[in-house]
């Protein structure tokens, strides 16, 4: 309930705060344009991107039984990024970049494909090693490799392509229009609904895979569903907003610390709402601290998210010792 109010509040703040004071305009057409064509799509994008990434983090953390898992840390966002870069170059080379829906669809599908490949690799590694540190290290290394490959592509890309994905790779919730949102919103809502039906197997997985199987859960099927949900959400959000850091890992941690329930039916709800609050809040901060220019959203999500992760590492280390 409180989270719902916070989402509404953060959403309203995101509409009100910006580089110009909305109420200083005498011209209502201008006011209308800024509110409905710029700020509303941006606020809706923040809301859905935050929710989606937080949900991905929760699913990854439950699947691997590892509170440090998340789409950005495990290289899933990097996989999506690399495939988007390749798609942008391919579209420019083929001369198709002017076709809006074709271009966006291909970029989104590539992004989902990239996320899917990395998620599958990470899951394979997790099954082989059963060691949380190994999974994290492989994820971090994969992110580095994919980042380097992306650097290579940027190096050889044309000036036009380079500009497109350097801007995009900084992460932004401000580059989406309502045309994009008609793709993002229904897809996210559909996948959120699927996630809620996974509460039962996810709860069983909190014990461990063997217990889950003994409780009648088809673990392989659940794993595939989690991979697909994560890849679709990370892929779509990365395609439209670029790789957004730390929301995926820090929001589920915050939710588990604030709401002491292991039940996924509740945690999924909390993560979706809290993810929206956090990313909307980060977007409001970027608007408040900058007027003539906008600070990239990743700067703020990292400043907010990374201390939470560091604190968690210290907390678990101290608890173990």
């Amino acid at each position: 309930m409180l989270l719902g109010v916070l989402v509404a509040l953060a959403f309203a703040c995101d509409l009100v705060f910006g580089s110009v004071n909305l109420f200083s305009f005498k011209d209502s057409v201008m006011q209308h344009t800024i509110l409905f064509d710029i700020r509303l799509p941006k606020a809706l994008t923040s809301l859905f991107a935050g929710s989606a990434l937080a949900l991905c983090g929760l699913l990854m953390q439950s699947l691997f039984r590892n509170p440090l898992a998340g789409p950005y840390v495990l290289g899933i966002s990097s996989g999506a990024s690399l495939f988007v870069s390749i798609a942008i170059i391919a579209l420019n080379l083929a001369g198709l970049s002017s076709f809006y829906y074709l271009g966006k669809s291909l970029i989104t599908l590539s992004s989902i494909g990239g996320a899917l490949v990395v998620t599958a690799v990470i899951t394979y590694v997790a099954n082989r090693s059963r060691n949380n540190i190994t999974v994290l290290l492989v994820g971090i290394m994969l992110a580095q490799i994919l980042g380097a490959l992306q650097g290579l592509i940027e190096f050889i890309a044309s000036a036009e392509s380079l500009k497109s994905f350097v801007v995009w790779s900084m992460g932004s919730v401000g580059n989406t229009s309502f045309k994009d949102l008609w793709l993002i919103m229904p897809l996210c809502l559909a996948v959120f609904a699927v996630a809620f039906t996974m509460a039962r197997p996810l709860n069983a997985l909190l014990l461990n895979e063997q217990y889950a199987r003994n409780l009648g859960v088809n673990v392989d099927k659940t794993r595939i569903r989690i991979i697909l949900v994560t890849a679709i959400l990370t892929g779509v959000i990365t395609a439209f907003c670029g790789p957004i850091a730390f929301v995926g890992i820090s929001v589920p941690i915050m939710c588990r610390l604030l709401f002491k329930t292991p039940n996924h039916l509740h945690q999924i709800t909390y993560c979706i709402l809290m993810g929206a609050v956090v990313l909307l809040g980060c977007d409001v901060i970027t608007q408040v601290i900058s007027s003539a220019f906008t600070v990239p959203i990743n700067t703020i999500t990292t400043i907010v998210g990374s201390p939470i992760v560091i604190w968690l590492i210290f907390k678990t280390r101290f608890a173990q010792s």
Partner: peptide, 23 residues
């Protein structure tokens, strides 16, 4: 971990009998 309390783990024994939404 994951906020699991003794009751949650015991109640997990009911997973084979409960609905999709785990209530």
């Amino acid at each position: 971990g994951f906020n699991l309390r003794a009751y949650d783990v015991v109640a997990a024994g009911r997973i084979p009998y409960i609905n999709t939404f785990s209530t």
